[in-house]
């Protein structure tokens, strides 16, 4: 493996992603966890960009950092009062869980041995035209269903979160 610039960037971004994912999982204080999640999502967006998926990288920032994470922060700030004072958030089953996660990691790594990652350093930026042709062509039905799902989720969220004003 040659250590050219994209490989180094890849390693750095991967390390940031791993560390911030650990932060999300392990940190007890809930606001720090949210920040860790933000850093994690941004590093994933950076990796997407490195792999040439610039539209996905931008959508990742838009949907996750600008949407999901903000929603999460809202939820934290809304329910924060009832949660203060009890910081013991990690369960006793951590050894079992760790072995499950580790076993899964070994299993997946072995299973993915055969997959050759052809990333050679400079991925060409994917063209918006082709992506939209795929979305509006062969995957049109899935695209429409995803839109329908979003609508259902929107209505559900309003009903669930705002329904107790009777």
């Amino acid at each position: 493996m040659s250590f050219d610039a994209p490989t180094i960037v890849q390693i750095i971004l991967g390390a940031i992603a791993l560390l911030s994912a650990m932060t999300v999982v392990l940190v007890r204080e809930i606001m720090r966890m949210a920040i860790g999640l933000g850093v994690f999502l941004l590093s994933v967006a950076g990796l997407f960009l490195l792999y040439g998926a610039s539209f996905l990288a931008t959508s990742e920032v838009f949907v996750y950092v600008g949407g999901v994470l903000v929603l999460m922060l809202f939820a934290i700030m809304l329910v924060q009062r009832s949660d203060s004072g009890r910081a013991v958030l990690v369960s006793r089953h951590d050894i079992g869980s760790a072995s499950v996660a580790l076993g899964l990691f070994v299993m997946l790594t072995v299973a993915l041995q055969g997959v050759s990652n052809r990333f050679t350093g400079s991925a060409p930026e994917s063209s918006m035209q082709e992506l939209s042709e795929v979305l509006m062509g062969g995957r049109l039905v899935q695209y429409e269903i995803a839109g329908l799902l979003l609508l259902v989720a929107l209505v559900a969220v309003i009903v669930i979160a705002g329904g107790d004003e009777r």
Binding site: M31, I35, G38, L42, T58, S59, V61, F62, V65, G66, G67, L69, V70, L73, F74, M77
Partner: peptide, 12 residues
């Protein structure tokens, strides 16, 4: 998309 990240700064 990118300025939407600053919402997090405001909340924080």
């Amino acid at each position: 998309a990118v300025p939407s990240v600053s919402v997090i700064g405001v909340l924080l």
